[in-house]
Design a protein around this nucleic acid. Structure first.
Length: 423
DNA sequence: TCTGGGGTCCTAGGACCC
DNA sequence: TCTGGGGTCCTAGGACCC
């Protein structure tokens, strides 16, 4: 059996932990640039405001109900996530951290336990230790554990815990779940299945496997088997090695000047290089992409991107920024108004590996022409004084800066922001 | 006025090899 | 009249996840 532990309204719940006055008020957390709604409290869901929709579309409704808005505070959410995962790991040792707010757990060691009681204990302990409310779903496959979790969240009668163990219960539950709510069925397959009158998870489970294989390929077949209790997806204890690192942002206003775009791409490339060193990796390729506004006149839309190989795989900021700016010159088109840009590093492998192919002509190793001491100094200064404290002149923040108007304090990761409690 | 940011995997088709 | 059989690699696009 598998359990899926998923935090309720995670980003909103993090804000509420340090500001309990928000607990019975409608709250949302916005995306970068304060553009979209990416986390909603129960009260906001009840207003019918959908996930990931644009704020300006709901302006009146948000004002009318006095909804509290937050800019995203990922420093806080990341730290709260590790608190939740640490507590969970202490209760259920066999876990896979699946995303910032959810984890699977293998329950092989708990065969003789009452799984409902165990799940309830997990829920109560995480709430007590971290302040974050979670829901727990239990089932014989990961996909069924997801379904159980979905039910535990949706139906208050479950009190946040749902165990699907026996076939009759499972089929009954599947009959009440929309096919588009099944893990692995996204917008595309939802539309396709509904056009064939397949409405519920049970309808999908009962289809002929040949038909599913033909039209939904290998992943669709796995989803179907998992719904029927055949486990195809095992617990992944170690994260598979990362294949790419991406930093991209939408701009606070449209950017037309090459110099401003250069500042943005320079800082994205610097951020990517810093993450590369954090994870002790080397990169072999740099991609730069730029978009002009996609919601305006579609005729003026421009999307440019290009990838180059770095001569010798590196983790040095100077080398990577230099490559990225060269690529930017190729993809920049004068006259376009840019709304978004990004840098992607790929061809990654561990810096410790002996598989680096060095340059025939240059003995500088994995930092390219950059000095290792310089990179270390930059990383140390930025970790002590905040990222961006020490940066390249080209990695400026003029012009393209994002809106972040409703940011909460970094309660758990910054000394100045720690809450003072008065008796 | 205003529309997120980060990932992974699979498939089809084309180019190329012998 | 008749035109092989076996591969690999790369890319674009589409699907999905949070």
């Amino acid at each position: 059996m598998f359990a899926l532990v998923d935090c309720n309204n995670f980003y909103v719940s993090c804000e509420r932990v340090f500001n309990p006055a928000l607990c019975n008020r409608p709250v949302v957390v916005l995306s970068n640039n304060d553009g979209c709604i990416i986390s909603r409290s129960q009260e906001v869901k009840a207003l019918g405001i959908p996930m990931a929709s644009a704020v300006f579309k709901h302006k009146d409704l948000l004002e009318q109900h006095d909804v509290v808005l937050f800019s995203p505070n990922f420093a806080l959410y990341g730290d709260m996530s590790s608190r939740v995962m640490n507590t969970l790991g202490g209760l259920l040792p066999d876990i896979e951290i699946y995303s910032i707010d959810e984890a699977f757990a293998g329950l092989q060691g708990f065969r003789r336990y009452d799984l409902g009681e165990l799940a309830g204990r997990v829920r109560d302990t995480i709430k007590r230790n971290t302040g974050i409310p979670v829901s727990v779903g239990v089932g014989p496959t990961k996909t069924l554990a997801k379904i159980a979790n979905h039910l535990a969240k949706k139906d208050a009668r479950y009190h946040g815990v749902c165990v699907l163990e026996h076939e009759g219960d499972i089929r009954k539950a599947l009959g009440g779940v929309q096919v588009g709510d099944v893990w692995g069925i996204g917008r595309g397959y939802d539309r396709f299945l509904r056009s064939h009158a397949i409405e519920t998870a049970l309808d999908l489970a009962d289809l002929s496997p040949e038909w599913v294989g033909r039209y939904m390929h290998i992943n669709g077949s796995r989803v179907q088997q998992e719904l029927n209790g055949v486990s195809c997806l095992s617990l992944e204890h170690v994260r598979p090695p990362r294949k790419s690192i991406c930093t991209s942002r939408s701009f606070g206003k449209k950017v037309t000047k090459f110099g401003e775009l250069e500042n943005a791409v320079g800082s994205f490339a610097s951020r990517c290089a810093a993450r590369l060193r954090e994870e002790r990796l080397l990169a072999g390729f740099v991609t730069v992409f730029v978009y002009s506004g996609s919601f305006d006149n579609p005729r003026c839309r421009y999307k440019g991107g290009h990838t180059v190989a770095i001569p010798v795989a590196t983790q040095g900021t100077l080398e990577i920024v230099r490559c990225a700016l060269d690529v930017l010159k190729e993809v920049y088109r004068k006259g376009s108004a840019y709304k978004k840009a990004g840098v992607v590093l790929s061809g990654l492998f561990p810096a410790s590996a002996s598989c680096v192919t060095p340059s025939l002509f240059d003995e500088n190793g994995i930092f390219g022409r950059d000095s290792q001491a310089l990179m270390q100094a930059i990383d140390v200064v930025n970790s002590r004084y905040g990222s961006g404290s020490l940066r390249l002149a080209v990695a400026g923040s003029s012009g393209w800066k994002q809106r972040m108007e409703k940011l909460s304090p970094r309660y758990t990761t910054c000394w100045e922001d720690i809450i003072a409690v008065k008796a």
